[in-house]
């Protein structure tokens, strides 16, 4: 992250290897990583427990982490595309969302889950999965079915449970007084990438290659 605007701490990571029938061997892999993230600069106005604040935070983090990567410098084609298939996760009782991210070439696919655990902290769960073969994504899907891998990911996402701490419970009750509905937007269009974020990690700015590459820019 060239903007260095978010701090992150890895909580857990794991990966699952998928093998075919006997003697066909390695076919693909799902990897999972969960980390806690927060903006480097404290922002008293921002509250991730509030749906709007949560969405701003997630989109800011995404842009800071992946939005600046460019696949084709001349035509400004971004390396990643997100969020795709955005949907709110309602069973968690706090603002939460899952969505996908795609790469410009068939390297791997991503599925994310985000939810807040305090005013300024988000939990970021990232699954990436890929098939061990070559070809365009369509050809790869024909050779190796991605369904078992996607099913595993969806099962894990469905099984997430959240027990709020007393402090978090109190804060949520506070917010519910002013806005009873904590659900996030049902839809979110993909962001216009490439883009940069400001030093606060939230404000999305126009892409400029020199912004963080040139000292004193």
């Amino acid at each position: 992250m060239p903007s260095k605007s978010w701090e992150h701490e890895l909580i857990a990571s794991r990966s699952w290897v998928f093998n075919g029938p006997w003697f066909t061997g390695y076919k693909g892999q799902v990897s999972f990583a969960m980390s806690g993230v927060n903006p480097g600069i404290q922002n008293p106005k921002l509250n991730f427990l509030h749906p709007k604040g949560f969405e701003t935070g997630v989109l800011g983090f995404l842009t800071a982490s992946w939005g600046y990567r460019v696949y084709d410098e001349e035509q400004e084609i971004p390396e990643y595309k997100a969020p795709l298939n955005w949907s709110p996760l309602t069973h968690l009782k706090i603002p939460a969302a899952r969505f996908d991210m795609e790469v410009a070439a068939p390297v791997s696919r991503y599925r994310f889950v985000f939810f807040p655990v305090s005013r300024d902290r988000l939990i970021h769960i990232r699954f990436s999965y890929w098939q061990a073969c070559a070809g365009s994504q369509q050809e790869q899907d024909q050779k190796i079915d991605p369904k078992p891998m996607q099913d595993l990911i969806d099962n894990i996402i469905r099984s997430i449970q959240l027990t709020p701490s007393p402090e978090l419970e109190a804060e949520l009750a506070e917010i519910k007084k002013s806005s009873p509905n904590l659900s996030v937007s049902p839809k979110c269009a993909p962001l216009k990438w490439p883009a940069d974020v400001d030093k606060d990690g939230i404000t999305i700015l126009e892409y400029d290659k020199r912004r963080y590459a040139t000292p004193g820019y």
Partner: peptide, 23 residues
Amino acid sequence: EKYQKPGLYKASKQDGQWEVGPA
């Protein structure tokens, strides 16, 4: 792009996993 010809890739380690970008 389909990895059927030689290419140059950037490899970086993210959360304990090696990831490569597109060619």
